[in-house]
Structures are given as structure tokens and as C-alpha cells.
Amino acid sequence: MAHAENRLEELRELVADVLEIEPEELTDTGDFMADYEADSLRAIEILARIDKRYKVEIPQEELPGLTNLKAVHDALARHSGGRG
């Protein structure tokens, strides 16, 4: 559990950096586009950073569903397989 929380906090920092906000401003369910003025390029950047950092490729087809931190966290867990 502690591991999962660490992962969530790591992701919060990563995503906040992409969204050009402070990690404290990013809630688990805040909508990237509606609440943080993100666009499609930011969302692609999040996937690219995850690929590089965790060596996990989340397919771009899943982008439409990745609208908040929790969804990104879940997708990362889903695609990590045994490595998460």
C-alpha cells in the first residue's frame, strides 16, 4: 500500500510539472482539461514521461479516458503487469 501511495505521489509531481502547476494544486480527480487548462499535447507528454520513467507504454488509444490523476495512476498499474 505504501508503495502504491508513493507511486501516486510520484505521478502527482510528474503530472503537475507537465500541467505547469504545483503538486498541491493537483487533486486525484481534477479534470486535466477543464480544471487545469491542459490540451492534447500535455496528455501525450504525460504518457511519454511515464514511458521514459517507468518503462511502461500506455497506448495512445487510452488517452480520451486519461482525464485525471487517478485514471492515469490506474492505467499505469494496469499496464505495469508484474513490474508495478
Partner: peptide, 11 residues
């Protein structure tokens, strides 16, 4: 220099 050549920042 990256492990994979496409590990560039799209932004």
C-alpha cells in the same frame, strides 16, 4: 543518448 531513440519530449 536515450535508451530508446523516441524517448523525446513531445511537448
Amino acid at each position: 543518448v536515450q535508451e530508446r531513440p523516441y524517448w523525446v519530449n513531445p511537448a
